[in-house]
Amino acid sequence: MAQRINYMQQSPEFFKKMLEFSTAEQQSAVEEKILHLVHIRASQMNGCGFCLDMHIKQAKIHGEGELRLYHISIWRESTLFSPRERAALAWTEVLTNLPEHGVPDELYNRVREQYSEKELSDLTFSVMSINAWNRINIAFKNVPGSADVAFGLTKAGLS
């Protein structure tokens, strides 16, 4: 697979703003570990190899367990995720593939049991962010692993 265009060079102003938006996640009220799960699950759902590769490596660098990484796609059946993590994964899925009639009240209420209003707002922005990154990286066929050195992802020890 060859990259189609380099969107970072072609639209540097937009790329800079997207980076700023993503960097703001570091101030999120939601734990970093959960944000990694969100990024990985949305990337799996969207089929974004570049983002999936990058976020798995980031999660591994930040101490995420390998088995949990393997179980993200089967989180409903897995016993490895807390109720709070399950709520984040459910929220990620519903916002990544919006149902025809919006987010069901039942799901919203279940997620609200785990997250404050601020946390849920921050979580929603994180889901928005990863979905935007997925779409641009899929559109322009960014090659998985191609930014490992630039992003310091070689530390993950995955090849």
Rank of each mutant, 00 (worst) to 15 (best):
M1S: 11
M1T: 07
R4M: 05
R4Y: 04
R4I: 08
M8A: 06
Q9R: 13
Q10D: 13
S11Y: 12
M18F: 10
F21P: 02
F21Y: 11
S22F: 02
S22D: 08
T23L: 09
T23K: 08
T23E: 09
A24N: 13
A24L: 14
Q26F: 11
V30D: 00
E32D: 10
K33D: 02
L35W: 00
L37C: 04
L37G: 02
H39G: 13
I40S: 14
R41I: 00
R41P: 03
Q44V: 15
N46P: 08
G49F: 01
F50M: 03
C51H: 11
C51Q: 05
L52W: 05
M54N: 07
H55L: 04
I56M: 09
K60R: 14
H62P: 06
G65T: 12
E66C: 04
R68N: 07
Y70I: 15
I74E: 04
S78W: 13
T79C: 00
L80I: 06
P83E: 04
E85N: 05
R86F: 07
A87E: 05
L89G: 03
L89T: 06
L89V: 06
A90F: 01
A90L: 07
W91N: 01
T92E: 03
E93A: 12
L95V: 10
L98I: 13
E100G: 12
G102R: 13
D105Y: 03
L107E: 01
Y108Q: 04
V111P: 00
E113K: 15
E117G: 00
E117T: 10
K118Q: 08
L120I: 11
S121N: 06
T124V: 07
F125L: 11
S126L: 04
V127D: 05
S129M: 14
I130G: 04
N131R: 09
A132I: 15
N134F: 12
N134H: 10
I136R: 11
I136Y: 11
N137A: 10
A139V: 06
V143T: 12
G145D: 09
V149S: 15
A150M: 12
F151G: 01
F151I: 09
G152P: 11
G152K: 12
T154W: 10
T154P: 03
A156S: 14
G157N: 07
G157Q: 05
L158P: 07
S159K: 15
S159V: 14
